[in-house]
Amino acid sequence: MDGISLYDDCVMLAYNKEVREKCLPFTCGEDDLDDFFLHDADLYADELLGKTYCWVTTEFPHRIVALFTLANDSIKTKLISSNDKNRLQRNIVNPKRGRSYPAVLIGRLGVNREYQGTPSHVGQQLMVFIKDWFRHEDNKTGCRFLVVDAYNEDKVLKYYDKNGFVPLYKTEEIEKQYYDIPQDAPLKTRLLYFDLKKD
């Protein structure tokens, strides 16, 4: 599968049981993500903990091209080192620097395996959309940053790096320290952020 545009060939919908039943089964190749989208996304929405959206092909049979879950969040500067705080606040005017900044958490994100690694760059299209969505003047709330707790794997980190995200904590050692994770234990995720005013 290639040559697909989220804007021209798909429609964005709130993800729910009705959408699942009208579409071919979805898999992104990550069991944890697939399980969340199939079994937990509706409960998160019901409990107001996160809202999942999907891009679905307009042509039949309908395919879910990509899924993403969003939730409100914030970045609290007292939980990061002075150096990391300076890096974070570099582009914020002095009078508006504070102890907490509004953010949106990308809780889950998955691209259908059929569209991974194709010339369409669905993952990049999706990230451009999310960024633009929260920069748009019709956005209902102030939001300075996008944040994600990304799997600490090369492929995943490269995706977010390519899309302008940077680690909140400069090194894994510092991140472990702030989360009270022993230094000899693996760090399963990295907290990354994107400044919506920067791009």
Rank of each mutant, 00 (worst) to 15 (best):
D2M: 01
G3D: 08
G3N: 15
I4A: 00
I4F: 04
S5I: 04
S5E: 05
S5K: 01
S5T: 00
L6S: 05
L6F: 02
L6T: 02
D9Y: 00
Y15S: 09
E18H: 01
V19A: 08
E21K: 12
K22V: 03
L24T: 12
P25E: 08
P25Y: 08
P25I: 04
T27M: 06
T27E: 12
D32Y: 11
L33W: 11
D35G: 05
F36A: 01
F37G: 06
L38P: 01
L38N: 06
D40R: 14
D42Q: 12
L48S: 03
L48R: 08
K51A: 14
Y53F: 12
C54R: 04
W55A: 06
V56P: 08
F60D: 15
F60E: 15
P61K: 06
R63C: 06
I64S: 00
V65K: 00
A66P: 02
T69I: 05
T69K: 07
N72V: 04
N72R: 05
D73C: 04
I75Y: 06
T77E: 03
L79F: 09
L79A: 06
I80W: 04
I80D: 05
N83S: 13
K85S: 02
L88K: 00
Q89C: 13
I92G: 02
N94A: 13
P95V: 09
R97F: 03
R97I: 10
G98W: 10
G107P: 05
G107Q: 03
G107H: 01
G110E: 04
V111T: 06
N112Y: 01
R113S: 11
Y115V: 00
Y115N: 00
Q116A: 07
T118Y: 02
P119W: 00
S120H: 01
V122N: 00
Q125V: 03
F129I: 10
K131D: 13
D132M: 09
W133Y: 15
R135F: 04
N139P: 01
K140A: 07
T141Q: 09
R144S: 15
V148L: 09
V148H: 11
Y151C: 06
K155E: 13
K155H: 09
Y160H: 14
K162Y: 14
N163K: 02
G164F: 14
F165E: 11
F165Y: 15
V166D: 10
V166S: 10
P167R: 07
Y169G: 08
K170F: 08
E172K: 13
K176Q: 14
Q177L: 14
Q177E: 15
P182Q: 12
P182L: 10
Q183E: 15
Q183R: 13
D184V: 03
A185F: 14
A185N: 11
L187N: 10
L187Q: 13
L187H: 13
K188A: 12
T189E: 11
R190M: 12
L192P: 06
D195H: 08
K198D: 09
